[in-house]
Nucleic acid binder design. Structure first.
Lengths: 343, 343
DNA sequence: CAATTCTACTGTAACGTTACAGATTTTAAT
DNA sequence: ATTAAAATCTGTAACGTTACAGTAGAATTG
C-alpha cells in the first residue's frame, strides 16, 4: 500500500459535493485512471487495490457521472420508448412502461418516453433519436409489414425491439402477441356457442397484425364452418364511432351473432353498441375479445376474454434491447406470447 | 467579414459526423466561443455574425450535444416523472405522460419516467434524482399533507410540481383536482335523486385529497341532509376486493342508496359489486364518480360522472416545473381544476 | 546476471460545451 | 492627436470520464 492516501483531510470540502473518480483517487492515493479501471474490474489492476477502491466508492456512494461517460464514450444509458399518443385509452402503454422499467431497474439504463401522434410522420421521433444519438436502444410499436422505422434503425445499426412483427425479410428483435392464434381460437369459442355469423373488429390494415388477425379469423371460419359479417370500422376508429357502427349493424337485417374484438379497449364500445341496439350479449350475440386489464367480465360476465399482458411485453422488449446492445444476435431475441383465455 | 471561412472543404469528412460548435466555427471562420455565444444570442456578438452563424447551424442541422452541455453546466434538460406502478389501471398515468410531453415538445426538455412501487419507500426515487443530479425538475403524485418528498425537494432547491396539494405550510407548485367540490357536488346530485344514505369510496387516508374529499362529502351530507353509510375499502384496495366489499354491503341490511366514488377505475368494480348483489343502478342505488376516460356511461348510462382530465393535469404540471426552473415564484404556479359533470 | 516478460499502476488527451479573462479593432471623447 | 470607452471577437481551462501509450518495479528466463 502506497502511503499517500489522505484520510479525513478536507472532509468538509469534499463531503457535500458529489464524489467523482478524483475524490476516490484522492482518498485512496491512487491515480484517477486506476480507480476508473478498478471499478470496471479491469484485468491489470491488483485484487487488493480493486477491493479497496470498491470499498471507498461504496462508502462515498459514488455513482459515475452520466454526462462524463456519455461525452467520452457516446454511451447514453437511455432506452427510448416511442409511443403513439392516439391509441391510448385503457392504459396499455403505461403497462408497457412499467414492464420496461421493471427490467431497467438495477441496470444503468433509464427510460425516456418519446410520444408522437401517429397521424404525424412516424419517422420523426426515430430520426431525431438517430440524429442526436440520444439513446442506446429504441422500442417502437404499431409495426407495419415493411416498416420504414425498422429499416432505418437496422441500417444505422441502432439496437431496437418492436412490439409486433415485420414481414419484409429483416431479422430483428421483437415481442408479439399471437394474434393469429387469438383470432382462430376466438372463432372456435364463438362457434362452440353455436354462433355462425361472425364479425371482426380488426386492426387497421396497414399494421402487420392485421394480417395475422385476418388469417387466424379466416382459417377459424373455415375450420369451424362459420361465415364473416363485414364490419368497416377498426380498433383505431374513435370509440363512439365504433359504438355507433356496432349499433347500426346490430339493428340491420345483416346482424352477426358473434363478434371477435381485437382490442380490449374497444370491447366496451362494442358492448355499448350491442346494448344500444337492444340486443343482449349471450342471447342475441356473443363476443370474444382480448383484454389487457381484467375488468371486462365485471361489465358483462358473458364476454369471452383472452388476456394480453402488456407488462410482460414491456419486460420482453426491454430485455431484448439490452441484449441487442450487448451484441446478442437478433434471432435469439424474438418472442411471441399466447392468448390466455379466462376459464 | 473575415476571409478565413472554409467553404466546401472536407465536406466528406465532416458531413457524416454530427456537427458540433467546432464544425460551425470551422465553416464560418469564427472561434468556437463566438459560435457558442452567437447561438445563445449573447449581447457581445455582432448582429451580422449571429445571423451567419444561425444560418450555418440550421443548414448543418446543428443540435447541441446534451452530454457536453450537461457536463459543463450541470443542466440535464430532463424532467423526471415519478410514477407509482401500483395504482395504475385505467391508464391515467399515460395521460399524464402525454400531457407533459405535449408541453415539453419544442423545449429542450425530455421526460424520464421513474416508476416505483408505493409499497416501497417513496423517498427512494426522489433521493436518487437528487443525489445523481439526474433531472432539472421533478413531478410527483400521491401527495401527503406533510409529504417528506416535498420537504426534501424544497430543501434541496430542486424545482418540482406535485399532483395534489400538501398542507404543511410549504409553498410549492401544484396542480390539483378540486376533490372537495367534487364530493360536495356528488352528494348534491345523489340527494337530488332522492338518495339519503350515501357511502363514500374514498382515497387512502394518508393522501391529502382524502381530507378534501371527506370535507366535501361531509359538508354535502350536512347541506343536503343525508347520512353516511360507512365503507371500509378505499380506492387503493384491489379491484376485486372493492367489488366484494360493495356486494357484501349491498346485501346487508345497512345498504346505502347512493355512493360517491373517488376514482374512475374503481367505479367499474363498484358497479360490478352492486350488480353481483342483484341490485340495480338507478333503481336501488345511484353512483356519482370521477372518470378519466369517458366510457363509464357506456357500461351503465345511469352512472353520474364528473370528468377529471389527467392530460390537462400533465400539461399544467409540466408548465409549472419549467416555469419554476426559470425562476418563477411558486405562488404563481398553482392550479386547481374543477369537476365537469356530464350533462 | 543480464535480458526479457509480467504485473500493477499512471499521465495525457480528448469527448463538446461554456465561464472567464483577455485581445483587438472601432468609435467616441477630450 | 491622444486617450478612453465600446463593440466584437477569441483562447484557455474545466466539467468527469475513458482510451491509449506509457513507466517502474518484480518475477522469470536463459
Amino acid at each position: 500500500m502506497k502511503n499517500k492516501a489522505n484520510f479525513g483531510a478536507t472532509v468538509t470540502e469534499a463531503s457535500r459535493e458529489r464524489p467523482t473518480l478524483k475524490t476516490i483517487a484522492f482518498m485512496t492515493g491512487l491515480g484517477i485512471t486506476t480507480v476508473s479501471r478498478a471499478l470496471k474490474d479491469a484485468p491489470d489492476i491488483g485484487a487488493e487495490t480493486k477491493e479497496r477502491v470498491r470499498m471507498v466508492a461504496s462508502q462515498l456512494g459514488y455513482q459515475p457521472n452520466r454526462a462524463g461517460v456519455r461525452l467520452r464514450t457516446g454511451k447514453t444509458n437511455v432506452i427510448a420508448l416511442v409511443l403513439s399518443i392516439d391509441e391510448e385509452i385503457m392504459g396499455f402503454s403505461s403497462q408497457l412502461v412499467f414492464g420496461i422499467s421493471e427490467v431497467l431497474t438495477g441496470t444503468p439504463y433509464h427510460i425516456v418516453v418519446t410520444p408522437h401522434s401517429h397521424s404525424k410522420d412516424p419517422m420523426l421521433p426515430v430520426r431525431y433519436i438517430l440524429e442526436t444519438g440520444s439513446a442506446d436502444g429504441v422500442i417502437i410499436s404499431r409495426i407495419e409489414p415493411d416498416d420504414p422505422r425498422v429499416r432505418l434503425l437496422s441500417e444505422r445499426n441502432m439496437p431496437f425491439a418492436t412490439h409486433g412483427r415485420t414481414d419484409a425479410g429483416l431479422t430483428h428483435p421483437f415481442h408479439d402477441f399471437d394474434n393469429e392464434a387469438f383470432a382462430h381460437q376466438a372463432v372456435e369459442k364463438l362457434v362452440a356457442l353455436g354462433r355462425k355469423r361472425i364479425a371482426l373488429l380488426q386492426p387497421p390494415s396497414k399494421l402487420t397484425y392485421y394480417t395475422h388477425t385476418r388469417i387466424g379469423f379466416q382459417t377459424g371460419l373455415h375450420d369451424y364452418g362459420a361465415e364473416e359479417v363485414p364490419l368497416r370500422v377498426t380498433i383505431d376508429t374513435p370509440l363512439d364511432e365504433i359504438r355507433n357502427a356496432i349499433e347500426a349493424l346490430m339493428r340491420s337485417n345483416n346482424a352477426p351473432d358473434g363478434i371477435v374484438c381485437s382490442a380490449g379497449s374497444a370491447a366496451i364500445a362494442v358492448n355499448a353498441g350491442i346494448e344500444a341496439a337492444g340486443k343482449r350479449l349471450g342471447v342475441d350475440i356473443d363476443m370474444a375479445t382480448k383484454e389487457s386489464t381484467p375488468i371486462l367480465n365485471w361489465i358483462r360476465p358473458e364476454i369471452i376474454t383472452a388476456r394480453e399482458d402488456f407488462r410482460h411485453a414491456g419486460r420482453e422488449m426491454a430485455k431484448a434491447v439490452i441484449a441487442r446492445i450487448d451484441g446478442v444476435e437478433p434471432e435469439l431475441l424474438q418472442s411471441i406470447s399466447q392468448p390466455v383465455w379466462k376459464a
